[in-house]
Nucleic acid binder design. Structure first.
Lengths: 130, 130
DNA sequence: GCAATAGCTAACAAAATTGTGAGCCGCAAA
DNA sequence: TTTGCGGCTCACAATTTTGTTAGCTATTGC
C-alpha cells in the first residue's frame, strides 16, 4: 500500500472515518493475510512452517504479509530464546487473538452459503412481482 | 476481478479451497463494499440514497460494487411495485442479512483496537527477552 | 569447502482494483 | 423543450496489489 493523496487513498481514509469496520476489513483483506493469522493461531508460527502450509506463496510475499500484519499490530515477531541458530517466531498480540473468533464467524458464514445454497431474500419478497 | 489462469487467480482459488474464510473475505473486501451492505441494512437501499451516504463514490463505482454484491448473492435488485417512475431498491438476501452481525463484530474489533491502544502479546511474553 | 535450512529483502513486472469522462434511457415538472 | 432526477453502463487511465528474479546472512551437517 504505497499511498499518496490519490483519490483512492482519500476514499480509503474517508471510509476509515465513516466506520472502523472499513479499517478492520482493510487490515484483514489482502491475499494470504487472514489465512496466515489463522495458521499462526493454530501453531504454525514460524516462517518455514507457514511456507509449508501455503505451498504456493513466495518467500517475498510471505515476508511482506507478515510485515504488514506486524504493522497493524496483529502479530509480533520474536526471537526464540536459547535456540542456537536463533529462531524467529510470530506471536499473535491480544488484538490478533481477538481477531481469530471473528475470522471463525466469517468462515462459518462462508460455509453456510457456500456454492449457492439457500440464497433467498427475506421470505415474502421472492414470490412477489417478477 | 477479470480472472485468468494467472498465478494470482490460481492462488486465490487455492485459498478458497483451504478455507471458506478466504472466499468470505474476498466477497466483503473491496472498496465501499461492506459499507454498502451496512448502509443497505440501515435502510439506504436505493441508488441515490447510497450516493448521498457515500459522497465521494462515483456512480460507475457504486453500480459496479452493487453488481458484485448481487453476483455474490448478498443483495438482490428489485423493482419497487406501483411507483410511477419505477424505482429500484436493493434488498439483502438471507446471506446478506446473516453477514451484518459478522460485520458488526469486525467493527467492534476495529473499535477496540483503534489508534494503537492496548496492543500487547499474550501477557507474559512482553516482559521477557529483549 | 559445499550444500542445506531458516529467514529474510530490494527492485521490478504482471495483474487486479479503483476512479474518470462521457453518455444513455424514462419520466416529470417548469 | 429543456432541466433534472433516478439509474445506470462503457472504455479507458491511474493506482495498488500480487508475484518473480535475484540476492543476502548465519548456522549446521557432510
Amino acid at each position: 500500500m504505497r499511498k499518496e493523496n490519490s483519490t483512492n487513498a482519500i476514499n480509503e481514509q474517508f471510509l476509515f472515518q465513516v466506520c472502523e469496520l472499513n479499517s478492520a476489513i482493510a487490515m484483514i483483506s489482502g491475499r494470504w493475510k487472514s489465512q496466515i493469522v489463522y495458521s499462526i493461531s493454530q501453531g504454525n508460527n514460524r516462517f518455514h512452517l507457514l511456507k509449508k502450509e501455503l505451498p504456493n506463496i513466495s518467500e517475498q510475499v510471505l515476508g511482506r504479509q507478515l510485515r504488514e500484519l506486524e504493522t497493524h499490530a496483529i502479530i509480533i515477531k520474536r526471537e526464540i530464546p536459547e535456540t542456537v541458530p536463533s529462531g524467529i517466531e510470530y506471536v499473535l498480540t491480544n488484538k490478533g487473538i481477538d481477531l481469530v473468533p471473528v475470522l471463525e464467524k466469517l468462515c462459518d458464514w462462508g460455509k453456510t452459503y457456500a456454492d449457492g445454497k439457500a440464497i433467498a431474500v427475506c421470505s415474502d419478497l421472492i414470490n412477489s412481482s417478477r
